[in-house]
């Protein structure tokens, strides 16, 4: 009967954890429709007026634009560089490929604060202080590991005989890569891109060290809002970001399948 009890405990833990993860999200969504500036349960009605105020937040649009720019550019650059690095590691007979792979993925294991301070000091030391550019380079450090990790995993599952098969069937070498390897790795590409984009878009601990008064990413700006005026506008903004993320994940699930993104199955 021990096993039965153990199974029940596991189930309770699983359900409890899922609730623990999801309930705050539901609360913030509910709060965003609060009719009063102070959020109180149970709700006494619903209002969408906070959504209308998002755009009027001080400095919202420049911050949103900055965050999107940094996330898009760092993701794009990471996808190219990370994939090339992954090919070298997974395919090349590189001595010490394992060490390179670990080094490439290591920022994932590093506390963001340490990374932020290190980058700040490093950039100062070499006289690299342009805020936008430093943010972009710092975010490359954040996004590259996601791309490298996903692409190394994707490439290790890729059967390079497929390229040989395509060649013997009449395809040139570059043609084979384009017609066979790219489609086969498309899911890995998409997954790497999404994780990379999200990691950059919501990064706070690294960005905070590199931002200045005129260059603030959205997460930094949001923390500032909540210190100044904690009303449901921020809840409305959070709900929109959440909605955007859900749509992104839903669409990718349609394309490649969420289980592949979570890495739980082929």
């Amino acid at each position: 009967m021990m096993t039965r009890a153990a199974i029940i405990v596991c189930w309770v833990m699983a359900i409890g954890l899922a609730l623990f993860l999801l309930v705050p999200l539901l609360v913030i969504a509910a709060a965003s429709f609060s009719p009063t500036p102070v959020f109180d349960l149970p709700l006494t009605g619903a209002s969408t007026r906070w959504y209308g105020r998002i755009g009027r937040l001080d400095g919202f649009w420049p911050s949103l634009l900055l965050s999107l720019q940094i996330a898009l550019f760092s993701t794009a650059i990471s996808l190219v560089c990370g994939t090339l690095a992954a090919i070298a590691i997974a395919r090349g007979k590189l001595p010490g490929a394992g060490i390179f792979a670990t080094a490439l993925v290591s920022p994932l294991m590093m506390p963001g604060l340490v990374l932020g301070i290190a980058l700040l000091q490093g950039f100062r030391a070499v006289g690299f202080t342009a805020p936008w550019a430093t943010l972009l380079v710092a975010h490359l450090v954040i996004t590259l590991p996601y791309v490298a990790r996903t692409m190394i995993a994707g490439l290790s599952r890729f059967d390079f005989t497929l390229i040989e098969a395509a060649r013997t069937l009449g395809c040139t070498y570059p043609g084979s890569v384009l017609r066979v390897m790219v489609p086969a790795l498309a899911p890995s590409f998409l997954i790497a891109g999404i994780f990379s984009f999200l990691a950059s878009f919501d990064n706070y601990p690294v960005s905070i060290f590199l931002a200045d008064v005129r260059t603030k990413t959205l997460p930094i700006r949001m923390l500032q809002y909540i210190e100044e005026a904690p009303d449901p506008t921020l809840a409305a903004l959070s709900t929109l970001i959440l909605l955007g993320t859900v749509i992104l994940l839903f669409v990718s699930d349609r394309v490649v399948g969420l289980h592949r993104m979570a890495g739980t199955s082929d």
């Binding site: 098969a165 013997t168 069937l169 009449g170 395809c171 040139t172 070498y173 043609g175």
Partner: peptide
């Protein structure tokens, strides 16, 4: 090159 050999593998 292999793509011009007309072999089947």
């Amino acid at each position: 090159p292999p793509h011009k050999r007309n072999v089947g593998v």
